[in-house]
Design a protein around this nucleic acid. Sequence first.
DNA 1: AGAACTAACGCAATCGATTGCTAAAAGTTC
DNA 2: GAACTTTTAGCAATCGATTGCGTTAGTTCT
Lengths: 341, 341
Amino acid sequence: MSRQPTEPKSARLKMADIAKLAGVSTSTVSRALAGNPSIPQALRDQISELARTHGYVINQSARSLRLQRTHTIGLIVPLGHERDQLITDPFFLEMIGRLADEITGRGYEVLLNKVVAPRADWLRRIVQSHRSDGLLIIGQSDQHEALNALADTYRPLVVWGGDIAERRYCTVGSDNVAGARLATQHMIAQGRRRIAFLGLPGAPEVELRREGYLQALREAGLSPYPELSAPAHFTIESAEPSVRALIDSGATFDGVLAASDLIAVTAINTLTAAGRTVPDEISVVGFDDISLARYSAPPLTTVRQDLATGARTMVDLLFRRIEGASTESVFMTPELVVRGT
Amino acid sequence: MSRQPTEPKSARLKMADIAKLAGVSTSTVSRALAGNPSIPQALRDQISELARTHGYVINQSARSLRLQRTHTIGLIVPLGHERDQLITDPFFLEMIGRLADEITGRGYEVLLNKVVAPRADWLRRIVQSHRSDGLLIIGQSDQHEALNALADTYRPLVVWGGDIAERRYCTVGSDNVAGARLATQHMIAQGRRRIAFLGLPGAPEVELRREGYLQALREAGLSPYPELSAPAHFTIESAEPSVRALIDSGATFDGVLAASDLIAVTAINTLTAAGRTVPDEISVVGFDDISLARYSAPPLTTVRQDLATGARTMVDLLFRRIEGASTESVFMTPELVVRGT
DNA sequence: AGAACTAACGCAATCGATTGCTAAAAGTTC
DNA sequence: GAACTTTTAGCAATCGATTGCGTTAGTTCT
């Protein structure tokens, strides 16, 4: 049968070992460690003490198998829309940090899962592997349909993203349309007339921000300029060529709405390097309000998303869903932070 | 015995179900899915296809229990030295992102574990819970002794941190002393004479950077100024009061070495708000070279740590240790990036 | 044809913890 | 002291996958 697997010297302690030491059965140890009142307090204390001094901790694989619960939340970053393999956008990183804080704060573990170029059944595979009790998805990427399909049969799922049509999964996010509209209106109010939009279509949130941008133009009686649109990715490296291409196209513009702060900062740098001045000649507004925005030169005007609240809300909703409740999606109203651009 | 646990309708598929469908035993299904050549190719394909169409995926809890392997790496962020509960420093976040990329790139899962105000036995508990096959610790925090104790009996462990005395665990990091020395020498070469150090003692990396700073002063024949030292934390919120206190103390200084970029940027802002000019009056140098450094105003001069290489090295070493090999620690030579401060 | 092999696959034990049922021990009541 | 209740704790099944050993059927050789 099975051979001695690993652990050469330092014996793996199991519950049976503690049971033997305490002179009771494993049932009793299990109940004692779980604080079950059918074991007298004195015995419970004695067993707990024994476990502590011997450094015994319950084996989580065995526990998860038996209980069909893992005490773990899966944190998933789908990168279907990005060629780049790395998690580099500070917004995503900060989101991961905050969600991890919220989850560990509730005593759960975090299983971090980056998914690049997903296969059709990737979500189901994650669910079926039974490694987590619930899933948080950071960004819809281009996986809207996969999420819809999953949501029909899998309840404990909350997605950070935009409010797009035909959405059947529970979502938390900002009102992207309103945010972009706000930003665009601000530039128009400053007298800008030819405003470019930087962002790679594909991710719903970018599409929605573009939608808000177009709305604001329309409301101001301005017609959108198809040539003033650059497919900037969400990484510094890939955004720069797009901005440069826009400059080189010879198109004239006096404002830029970027789909993210990272793109905005890249735009500022590229524009400045090309001899344009920000904000005198060209005004730039970002989206997210990552910490970088406050420190860029000049400080970036941007649309603020409240990540702290967003993360807390996501985790709240997820735990309610794990308990079987139904939950409504939540979209927060973003806020324009006017700084120097 | 055990009641119907969860899953009301959508049946949990198990290997036995696939076995029944295929008209074979679970042994055969297990071997087929594992690609075991003792099962004929045709049958293997047929079983795999059956599993795919029915959306069957191996239950990882059961697999881990049986194999005594979890196919998971634990990523641990100890926050013993910070009052703050949140993972906010961009350096840590970027480190998490890069490590996660490296680990998932090798087909392993990432279990993210933030540990605040650790109890004495926290590390052993994590190990004994058998949730991961190896541990990566991001930063020594104030847990040097705990790490030493663990390393004596637990092999698959790699720590990001500084090269401190009596260290028995495998470590990857920068030569913090050399980095800080370089930065300080640079400021001295620029004619700065009264250079302050900002950083909270407690974390070894900060101590080492302070050591390098003192070395450079000594080498230049300058005596250190005890009053020019502020215990800045690693978050924006807590670093600012320290800087302000330094300013308010009335001490004169013409240079600042910060223990991290976040502290440096905070210092610049606080100094500027107090009417001092950077770098004319006061020169500021940071440590880490996070992306923010490049975009701050003015762009931050800083000591660059190569995170990409660091993360890759850590994961490489860890996997070698998991396979039973012994490994040497690695300390990279940091590089001074001269920008505008 | 019979012996000697090999290929294919099933049996059943195992990983470690949980828990419904039940039995023994202890305590109450009349 | 009998009958009954309550307390305490063990038995054994269970979660789902893996794998050493053994069995059956099929080949090859003498």
